[in-house]
C-alpha cells in the first residue's frame, strides 16, 4: 500500500483521529515510565504533550512511533496499529527525536537525500523537495556544509526538514525547540504553524508552557508517567483558578471613587495605589462586560480595562506542585540538561 492510499479514505475510517493512544503503559523493570496514557488527536490539529523532565514524554512518543513496544495498551497512527502494523505506521509519520538524528558527516543536502532514498522517493523529487525544505528552514546557504559545522539551531532545523522529506500526514516532534535561542524558537513555531495550516497533524512534546500555549489546540499534561490534566489551553487556565478584572484609573484622585463603584458590583477589590490599579475576581467575560458598562456610565476615566487569566505556569504549579522549567533562552546551542531540582524530584519517586 502506498502512502497516498492511506490519505483521506484511511482517515475517514478512523473517525477523523490521526493519532489515538489507548491505555498506553511502559515499564522498565519495576519502574513505570508511562502509566495508562490515553488521548486522541483529530486530524489537522496540534496536541501538546507537556511535562517536566522524566515525565514520560519521550517514552510515549517512542511507543507511538514504533521504536518501543508498549508493555500494554495500544496506539494508532493514521488508523494503523503501532504494534500490529508498524510498517504502515512508519509510512504515515515523520519523527524528530529528542536527540539529533542527522548524520554528522554528511552535508544538509546529503542528509535529505539519504532519508529521501530510504523513503523510496524518486531522485528528481528528492532534489526538488530538498531545495524547498532548505529554503523553508533558512538553510539554503548551509545546504552543502557538513553538519559538524552547523550550530545547534541549524541542526535542529535540518532534523525537522529531514522528517518532512516524505510529506508525512502525521508528525511527532520530541522537544523540537529545546536548546534553541528565543529567535530560532519563534521561527520554528512559524514553520510548524504553516505545516498545520497545510493539514499536518502534529504531536509535540515540550517542557515549555508557553510553547504549548502558542501551538497546541489541546494540551495533555503528564507527570511521573500519568496524565494529570488535559484540555484546551483556555480550559486548563480556567481549571487552576479564577480570572480577574484588572482596571487602571487615569487620574489618581478618582481611584477611591472607582474602588467604591467596583466594590458595589463585585465581592472583593484589591487596590494598588502606586499603579492606580484595581483587581477583582471575575467569572469570565460577562463579569467584565458588566463592569465595563458601569464605568462607561460613570465620570471615572479609565486607562485600561481587561480580563487577566492565570498563566499556564500557574496551572502547572497548581497541578504538579512544582514549576515547569523556564525556556532556556540564554543557553542556546546545547541540549538542555535537566535542572538539579527536577532531577532530585525524579529520584525521589
Amino acid at each position: 500500500m502506498t502512502l497516498t492510499s492511506t490519505a483521506p479514505s484511511g482517515r475517514a475510517r478512523s473517525s477523523g483521529a490521526a493519532i489515538e493512544a489507548e491505555h498506553l503503559v511502559k515499564r522498565f523493570g519495576d519502574m513505570t515510565a508511562v502509566d495508562d496514557v490515553s488521548f486522541t488527536v483529530p486530524q489537522g490539529t496540534v496536541l501538546g504533550l507537556l511535562g517536566p523532565n522524566g515525565a514520560g514524554k519521550t517514552t510515549t512518543v517512542r511507543m507511538m512511533t514504533t521504536l518501543s513496544e508498549p508493555t500494554s495498551g495500544t496506539a494508532r497512527v493514521a488508523g494503523h496499529d503501532v504494534v500490529r502494523e508498524p510498517e504502515a505506521v512508519r509510512r504515515s509519520m515523520g519523527l524528530t527525536g529528542q536527540a539529533a538524528t542527522v548524520d554528522e558527516l554528511l552535508t544538509g543536502r546529503e542528509n535529505l537525500r539519504l532519508m529521501g532514498s530510504l523513503y523510496g522517493l524518486p531522485k528528481a523529487a528528492i532534489r526538488q523537495l530538498s531545495d524547498e525544505l532548505l529554503e523553508r528552514f533558512s538553510l539554503t546557504d548551509a545546504g552543502d556544509k557538513v553538519i559538524k559545522d552547523y550550530s545547534g539551531g541549524m541542526r535542529r532545523r535540518l532534523d525537522l526538514a529531514v522528517s518532512l522529506i516524505a510529506t508525512p500526514p502525521v508528525l511527532f516532534l520530541d522537544e523540537p525547540t529545546t536548546g534553541l535561542d528565543p529567535r530560532s524558537r519563534v521561527e520554528l513555531w512559524e514553520v510548524l504553524r504553516s505545516l498545520v495550516r497545510d493539514g499536518t497533524t502534529l504531536l509535540l512534546t515540550t517542557q515549555y508552557l508557553e510553547e504549548a500555549d502558542q501551538l497546541a489546540d489541546r494540551i495533555v499534561v503528564i507527570d511521573h508517567g500519568r496524565i494529570i490534566a488535559q484540555g484546551t489551553p483556555l480550559e486548563l487556565k480556567d481549571q487552576s483558578g479564577k480570572a480577574a478584572i484588572v482596571l487602571t484609573v487615569s487620574h489618581a484622585d478618582q481611584l477611591e471613587a472607582a474602588r467604591a463603584l467596583l466594590a458595589s458590583h463585585v465581592p472583593e477589590v484589591h487596590v494598588d495605589v502606586a499603579a492606580r490599579q484595581l483587581t477583582a475576581p471575575a467569572d469570565g467575560l460577562s463579569d467584565m462586560t458588566r463592569v465595563a458598562t458601569v464605568f462607561e456610565r460613570s465620570e471615572i476615566v479609565l486607562d485600561d480595562l481587561g480580563l487577566q487569566r492565570p498563566s499556564l505556569d500557574d496551572v502547572f504549579l497548581s497541578l504538579t506542585g512544582h514549576r515547569a522549567e523556564p525556556p532556556a533562552g540564554a543557553t542556546a546551542d546545547t541540549t538542555s540538561s535537566p535542572s538539579p531540582s527536577t532531577q532530585s524530584e525524579e529520584s525521589q519517586s
Binding site: 502506498t2 502512502l3 497516498t4 490519505a7 483521506p8 486530524q43 489537522g44 510498517e87 509510512r91 532514498s117 530510504l118 523513503y119 523510496g120 522517493l121 524518486p122 523529487a125 523537495l129 516524505a166 510529506t167 508525512p168 500526514p169 498545520v196 495550516r197 497545510d198 493539514g199 499536518t200 497533524t201
Partner: peptide
C-alpha cells in the same frame, strides 16, 4: 483556513 492535508508524494517504500 485548515484545508485537506498536503497530498503526500506518490511513492513506494524502497
Amino acid at each position: 483556513t485548515r484545508v485537506a492535508p498536503a497530498a503526500p508524494h506518490d511513492f513506494q517504500p524502497p
